[in-house]
C-alpha cells in the first residue's frame, strides 16, 4: 500500500519525509511498546504508535523502519522531526486511535507482520 493511500485513509498529515510518499509498504505493526518492536525480525514495515518521544525514532533507526504513523493526535517535537529527517524517515500524524487506524489499514489490505 502506498504511503499516499495510508495518509488518505487515516485522515493524516505528513510531519516530515514527504519524498517517501510513493513508497510501497506491505506490512504493519502497531505498538506502544518499543521493546516489542525491537524483537521483530522484519524490515521496511510501517510502525503505528501512540508514543511521540525520541525513542520511537531511535527504535525505528536500529530496527530499519523508515515509515511511522503517530496516532491519537499526538504531536512530535522539533528535535524529533529533525532527527527523523536526518535519518530519512517519513512521519505521519493521524487523529485516529491506534485501534481505528490499524483496523482501517487492515480492512484495506495492509498485512499484519504475523
Amino acid at each position: 500500500m502506498k504511503i499516499e493511500k495510508i495518509i488518505q485513509l487515516l485522515d493524516a498529515k505528513i510531519v516530515c519525509g514527504s519524498h517517501r510518499i510513493s513508497d510501497d509498504i506491505s506490512n504493519a505493526f502497531s505498538s506502544d511498546l518499543m521493546s516489542d518492536v525491537l524483537t521483530l525480525d522484519a524490515e521496511n514495515m510501517l510502525l503505528i504508535t501512540g508514543l511521540a518521544n525520541v525513542q520511537i525514532i531511535r527504535t525505528a533507526e536500529v530496527a530499519e523502519i523508515h515509515h511511522l504513523v503517530i496516532v491519537r493526535n499526538k504531536k512530535v517535537s522539533e528535535d524529533i522531526v529533525e532527527l527523523a529527517n536526518e535519518l530519512n524517515m517519513i512521519l505521519i500524524e493521524s487523529p485516529y486511535s491506534m485501534f481505528k487506524a490499524s483496523g482501517i489499514l487492515y480492512a484495506n489490505g495492509l498485512n499484519p507482520l504475523y
Partner: peptide
Amino acid sequence: EMGFGAGMGLPNMKK
C-alpha cells in the same frame, strides 16, 4: 512510559 521496561531487554540482547 518511554516504551520500555517490559522485561525484554536482556532476553533480546541474548537473542
